[in-house]
Structure formats: structure tokens, C-alpha cells
Nucleic acid binder design. Sequence first.
RNA 1: GCUGGCGUAGCUCAACUGGUAGAGCACCUGAUUUGUAAUCAGGCGGUUGGGGGUUCAAGUCCCUUCGCCAGCUCCA
Length: 640
Amino acid sequence: MGAGDVTLLIDGQGRQETVTVTGGTRLLELAPPAQEPPVLAALLDGRPVDLARPVFEPGHVAWLSFRDDPGRRVFRHSSAHLLAQALKRLWPETKLGTGPALEDGYYYDAEPPVPITAQDLPRIQETMAQIVAENLTIERKEISREEAMRLFAERHEPYKLEIIEGLAEDAVISIYQQGEFVDLCAGPHVPSTGFIGTVRLTNVSGAYWRGDERNPMMTRVYGTSFPSEDELQQHLKRVEEARLRDHRRVGRELGLVQFREEAPGFAFWMPKGVRLYRALEQFSRDLQGPLGYEEVMTPWIYRAELWKQSGHWQNFRDNMFVIAADEEMAVKPMNCPGHCLLFKSETRSYRELPIKWADYSPLSRFERSGTLNGLLRVRGLHQDDAHLYVRPDQIEEQIFECVGLVDTVARAFDLGQMEIEFSTRPEEYLGDLQTWARAEADLEAALRRSGRAYRINPGDGAFYGPKLDFYATDALGRRWQLSTVQLDYQLPEQFDLHYVDHEGKPRRPVMIHRAILGSLERFIGILIEHYGGAFPFWLAPEQVRVLPITEAQEAWAAQIAGDLKADGIRVHVDDRREKLGYKIRAAQGDRVPVMLVAGAREAEAGQVGVRTRQNGDEGPKPWDDVRAQMRALNRRPIDA
RNA sequence: GCUGGCGUAGCUCAACUGGUAGAGCACCUGAUUUGUAAUCAGGCGGUUGGGGGUUCAAGUCCCUUCGCCAGCUCCA
């Protein structure tokens, strides 16, 4: 082993090996040559680096390919550079912003001399493909701040200059060059443009420079890229699948919910939608009722004074509907102030705590027009909201109980395990450090007790207290924030709430604000997409459809439906004079989970032909058996 | 809110450079009494989101307004 030799520990496929090489050797020379998918970059002691990187120090190397997440990011980031290069080729005066990798694609923000529209995308895409074909080597150079400033000044890239100016004093500044194109970039990148197999531009939109609406609007071009055409097609298929599941489309098709321009941001619930909505609401009530929750109903419009007292006027006014009556009033965006008034209306003893008040009131929040999004972002909503007024010694126990509720909900809707984020004290906070420390400790103790894994989000808590956020992953792999549990020390203060302790002294209660399903509107929107409209039996707006084959079986069909109705099952008889195949097709299209065929044979034998949405024809069965089966199917995840 | 795109029958979508607004599904009527994913025939249905303008002529071009969609730092 020579003086300049370097020993590296390399993660191969499934095993590790130790390699000793001459100092200055490039990683490229060590990478497995013909691996599929090819090695694109490497992790050197955990940091992503280019394959062209020479090594001088001993270290730990892991190869990155399109198969792993960081590798995919490198691939996409290099794709973004391709996009920028194409833009510069087509419109040399284009000013470049930034172009990062995304979850399954990338974008580049630029300021072109002429507006770019979707019609330009094919042209840009062709230019990108051309650059891939040229297989330009991608080279990294580290340069001084002065050099960088000079370079990008020469190239008339004001945004790049701004970025450089914002970089830390001691930052390593690097540029990447491929052919005539140079970009300021931390890297790493794939070795050459030929590594990017196939690119597809998907969308173009506006985006403020650095996301600040006071800054100029840039043009953002979105794209994705894959090693092969095949993988691109698969991806496009997934996107199409998601589009077909879009709750706005499915919600309307299934007659659940619709939106109209007469009331932007507010849902119109149709009869079937209300069945679903009520099923969920009842589920929520039955879930928490046994835990000592009581339901309250509180006013939905209050004098401005109340909102001043609660702090909403100062912090939330832009999101409230303020109305001019004989005095200024506001429609409630949250239930908490109303609940505090109720709490205060009587002297509370330490013996009655915890008090747990649920409230499904309508809430109104003014959301900017551009942010509205079907059921997912509305102006009118209902939460499975509750406020718990507790003594400090009850915090841990109550939080623990809330985590349990979240788990039950995740199981009930096939949402897997929810991920938990624990947000701690932010820089701007109210109250004293001691209280915060206690609150965070209580939250954490409850989490520990639940045995659940969680991630700490330092400094991301609300100004009034730490919180837990729960994230679910749906059937399409998308992540949604659903439940939230927040400790609040602020409102009890604002409203001067107290209870009397065992010594007869007044004490300040702590509030826990929690929503498990969150906004019912949003939750239903997510459920529609999660299930693709094919709800499980207990939730389905129409659970059973009875299909008589001819008019002669209408009596039998009516009896079946009557029995089911008596069992509390949502049933409908399709007595149109159509063929069976036609009715089945219609029921399948309406995602009805169970179809019961009533023909002459069945009517005579006291049977029904069972057909499920999922398994198709299951043949004739005695009605009593089927009826019992339907009752069993109708049990909710929380029913015994 | 801002930028870009879009808005045609209840729904999904047609209508070449401006030249008589169409189809499928749904719905209604009639015939068919039907056995596990679409029976046939006929019919109803549109001030082309609203308003204004250009033109001999506007779904198509221009202005305006409303709504919808995408996006508005997963940090060079």
C-alpha cells in the first residue's frame, strides 16, 4: 500500500467490500460497469457526490441508481438541467431561476423573453431529447465567489447572482457544465446527458421567484423523466389512474357531491353524499361517545368582540368571513371560543375534569380563490372537532387516548399506520419555559406509552402549545395530514378560565384541541380517491341493490329490500324493465358493493342470487343466510 | 390574490384557417318480460359561463366579468 493510497469501504449489491486505490482515483473507475439500472452517483460517507469525484481520503461508498430515492433525485435534478439548457438554446435571453427535483419529476423556473405556453412544450422536449442524444459530459467545477459572480454577470443571470449573494460566507460554490450550458449548482449529477433516458414535459405554470408574491412571476416548466420509455408509460398510467379517481369527478358521477359557481368553495351534498356523510359522522360519535365525550352545539356567528378576545381578530382575520349586521360580526372559523364561553358559564370543579366537548358545527374560513380545491380545500366545512378541558395531571392520559382514536380511525379506513410528527416550541411562543417543558414532556410520555414511532419537528409547534400531527398514506401512495392534537395554554388564559381544585383554589385548566377525521369534507374527498369511489360495505351510500329479472319477481324483490331496510341497510330495487346484464352494469358503475338477483327460480325457492362488486357471481343462496351475511357485513370497524 | 390554461346539452367530448352547433351516455316515450357488465326505435335537451365589442357573418378574434384547473422555494 503506497503512501498516497486510500482504503474505501464499498457497499456492493448485498455485500460490502474493502478496496484500496491510489489517491485521486475517480469513483467512476470503481463503480460496477454494467449494472442495471446503471450507477448514477454515489454516497461518500453519506453525502451524495458525482462519480467523477476523485477520492483522497478513506471513506464509505454507496452507489446510487434510479432505484433508490437519492439516486432518483440526482437523475431528476440532471433532467432539470437538461430542461434549462433546452430553454437557453431556444431562447438564449432566458434568465434562469432554480430547478430542483420533485417527488416524481422536476421543474425549472425561468424568465423567458417571450411567454411560454403548453404549446411550446413539445419543442422544448425535442430539444431536450436532442441534448440527451448528444450525450454531453457533465462536469463539476468549484470556483470562488468572485469567479462565480463574474461568470453569471457575464451570462446575464441576475437570479443566479442573487442566489450566490445569499450563500453562506464559507459555502463551497460549484458550477456544472454540459456542452455550452453552465449552471450554478451544488450537485451531484449524472456523468453525462445520455444517462437521462426519456423526458416528458407535463405542465407549465407561473411561480413567484422564491415563492414570494412580492417578487416577479417566473415561468415554471414541469417535467418528469425515466431511464426507459416503458417506465415513463407506467408512470403516465398511474397519473391517469389518479385523474380518474379525482374526487370532484367521482363525487359527481356517483351523485355524492358537487360544486357550483354560485357558491365557490362550498359543497352541495346530494342525497347519496349525505348518506355517506352521516355514516361517517355517526361513526365519529360512536367512536368517542364511550370515552366520555359530550356533544355541544354553539353559535356560528359572534360579535367581533369575542374574536378580539380569543386573538383570532389579530391572527386569523384574513381567513374569516366578517359580516356587517347592525354591528360587526364574524362567522366562526373554529369552535374553541364558543366552547370556552360554555366552560366559563359555570363554576367548574376539578372533579368534573376532563370535560370533553365535541362539536360538528359548520365552520367558515375565507380561503383565497386560487387555493380552493374541491373538497380538499373549502370555505365551508365541518370538523369532528373536540376540546378537552383538563387538569395538568390529566394531559398525558388524555393525549394517549387521542392517539388511540387516531389508530382506530387509520385501521377503520385501511389507511395503514399513520405517521406522527411531534412539533415543539417555536421561536415565537407565549407562556413560560417551564410550562412548555412540562407540556412537551407530557406529550412525549403519551407517545412513548402508545409505543408509536414519531418524528420530532423542532420549533414547528403553535405559538400557544406543542402539537401532534398525524399523516396517512392513501391507496395511491399520497400522504395526507389528517388528525391533529394540540395542547393549548393560551386560550384558557385569554378567557380567564378556571376550575376549583380540591383545596378550593382556582386553577387554570389546559385545553386540548383535537380533530381525528379533521374536516369531514376533506376526509370524504380523500376517501373517495383512496377507495376510487368503491367504498367498503359499511360506508357505501347504496349498500345493496336488488335486481328482479322480470316484473313477476317484484314482490319477492320488495320483500328482500324490506327486510334489509328493517336491518338498517341502505338498499335500492332496480325494477326497470331492462335485461339483467344492463342492471348489473349500472350497479357496477355505481360501485354498489352487493347485488342480489331475484329471478323466478330464486323467488320460488326463497333464495337470492348473490353477486358482489368484487367477486362477481356467487350463485343462489337461501335468503335467511344472505340476510344474516348482510347484517354481518354491515358491522362497522368499531362495532363489537 | 397573482401567472398561465380552460369554460360547447345533466355528463364525456366533437365542430379545418371566422361561414347553418353535433355525437355517445343519461333522461323521456313506445316495443321487447328479459338469468350475471350495454335490446331496438323514436324523442326531449344548447342565448356555446355572463356582459360588451370587431365583422356581411363570432363557439372561433378583442375587451371585461364569473367560475374551474395547474402552480406560487420538498432550498443554488
